[in-house]
Design a protein around this nucleic acid. Structure first.
Lengths: 353, 353
DNA sequence: CGACCCTATGTAATCGATTACATGCAACTT
DNA sequence: AAGTTGCATGTAATCGATTACATAGGGTCG
């Protein structure tokens, strides 16, 4: 008896239960569809009695506005695209969570694009945003869509609010949320130097990466502040992955004169590198100190536990989402937010033997 | 000169460049909108000449169909919801990648819902699917929406295709993709017993969790196959997190008689547990062997490297997405897929001292 | 008391595609 | 030659909301 109660024309029958539409609610509440719509969007512009009847009818029918129809008319999707280079990378997952929870509270959904280094995907997602499937985007990949084909007249005018997270996009005039990578790297370098290390190796991130450039500058800053010379032979290429840390470790093991400390610009690399050193019979930190960057979950439980730079990942995500939402809703938003990092001292670093 | 070329009524001017609509393409190609639509959806039903003109016009205008309009009319969103309990958990990220890449190839987008244990969120996403924002969903959380309020007459009739991944949903008649948790746990237990361990501890997952139940049964199977008695005192509660592994380790360290081997049902717990044992001065594997489950990236570079059960995570994601896509497109799909696991022998397990 | 304004509501246009149905024409059948 | 079939295409209804505009009624003010 208390099912839909389909009044008017069509025979109810046992047909597949279609979702209630605004029409059904309007009929049940004895108002027009316009009033139903207003009762939801601008309650103060509807009389209390009508509002009550509408809400009752909504409860009875289980009405949920059809998002496609709403989007078509209002040109708002309440969806945000998050673009990231590698979904499987531990570093991003907690950031994502910060983003997701903030968006959720504001009524936005999140669509994730894992670029995976594929230009094909990038083009796809450029089309995606162009087609108006999302109201805005958060970019964690350090560049805009279609950066590759630069000269072609369409210099990535996406036309929706964008926010850069972690990796500021140099040429673009969009807000970015970040940590002070340069200062943090400098601080770690000085920490190592302060313990007495003179030969400090640096395991880099991917070349051309903004983070890498900043951290590398910070490393040199730190050396200079400590009065140490910069030695290019102590720069080891990496790409933030465990595997590249392992490879860097193998290179170190093979050397005759080794650095007394290694600063890895990601925890993954640091953990991979420690693994290789330990397997080769070297002791950490007695024979060689190892420092990381990021403070991922596993840094605290690595053996030895990892001295690293803590990044407030969840907060970074929250901040990016907050800024984007402000932009979407026409509120002013800061052009740049810089969150504090923290030097976390654990057991993988000690004074040189 | 070669911009939109807005024929007919409205003055072009320098107004904000609106996205091209099907109307614009139709006018430019000198056909009706129906033909444009058909040229894209069913090319074989359009003459080659018309098709060529349409494609040319599309290229010229940069036309991309408006998804909201398309969805509104065709009731298809080309979006899939992925529901998972914890986005920040390493275990899921590679699965997600498998899902994402498969969906992407088939032209589907992915919306992620990180439930985060919040019933509020669950309700929200139930409404989400009910509102028709997605064509289907992949559930990694082990239960359907609204499982809590069972008796209330609406037993989670979502009405869209669903696929369960990893954690089969007992009461629901939906396809599930999984590994044979019970057999894998039994195998690991027998491996430990085969090395001579008689007192094997078991660090569990969360109570009521389906995975946990299966693995626990497998553990008992393994003991029985090895002719070992089951001792409830050797079952230590956990919840798959690093922290619970650390806690389990603290419990072990405090004991007077310890097991000679510990089987942790996640790598996170195993790594946290090893950390605690090592800090307490115990040696792994000499004093105590530790085994994990999942084979996450860090298992290979833990110190000591972790003996564990390898789960084909990416493939699990791919399989789930493939099944869902088959369902969405009306093709038959298997009710159950079971992928093979692998016992990975590393250095955290050795015969008892 | 009439002009004016404000509030609550209804009517209907609109968003941009898909698609059922209609139509015109060429080719084929008998 | 008339009828049938089928293809290519166009016309217009439709999906379900939002919202510009119109309108009715009640209150205020000069």
């Amino acid at each position: 008896m208390d099912d839909l109660g389909q009044a008017g024309g069509t025979e109810p029958g046992d047909a597949p239960v279609r979702a209630a539409r605004i029409q059904d609610v309007a009929r049940l509440a004895d108002v027009s569809t316009a009033t139903v719509s207003r009762a939801l969007a601008t309650p103060e512009r509807v009389s209390p009695e009508a509002r009550a009847r509408v809400l009752e009818a909504i409860a009875k029918t289980g009405y949920v506005p059809n998002p496609a129809a709403r989007t078509l008319r209002s040109q708002k999707t309440y969806m945000v695209l998050v673009v990231l280079p590698d979904l499987a990378n531990t570093f991003f997952s907690k950031i994502l969570r910060g983003i997701e929870e903030t968006l959720f509270e504001a009524g936005y959904g999140m669509i994730i694009s894992d670029l995976d280094g594929s230009p094909e995907k990038e083009a796809h997602f450029a089309a995606f945003t162009a087609a108006g499937r999302v109201d805005g985007a958060i970019l964690l990949n350090g560049h805009l869509f279609g950066q590759s084909r630069e000269g072609e007249g369409q210099p990535a005018r996406i036309g929706i609010p964008l926010v850069a997270l972690c990796e500021a996009i140099p040429s673009a005039d969009i807000p970015h949320i970040e940590i002070d990578n340069r200062a943090a790297a400098s601080r770690m370098t000085q920490h190592l130097a302060g313990l007495g290390h003179r030969r400090i190796a640096y395991v880099s991130g991917p070349a051309n990466n903004i983070l890498e450039r900043e951290r590398f500058l910070g490393f040199k800053d730190g050396l200079e502040a400590a009065g140490l010379p910069f030695d290019p032979a102590l720069v080891i290429p990496g790409d933030y992955t465990i595997e590249s840390g392992v490879a860097a470790g193998q290179g170190l093991v093979a050397r005759t004169t080794r650095p007394t400390a290694v600063f890895c610009t990601s925890d993954e690399m640091a953990i991979g590198l420690m693994r290789t050193l330990l397997s080769a019979g070297l002791r950490v930190p007695e024979d060689i100190s190892v420092a990381g960057f990021d403070d991922i979950e596993f840094a605290a439980v690595a053996e030895p536990s990892l001295t690293t730079i803590h990044q407030p990942r969840r907060e970074l995500g929250q901040a990016a989402a907050t800024v984007l939402i402000d932009l979407l809703q026409g509120r002013p938003a800061p052009k740049q937010i810089r969150l504090e990092t923290e030097l976390v001292i654990r057991n993988s670093v000690a004074p040189p033997g």
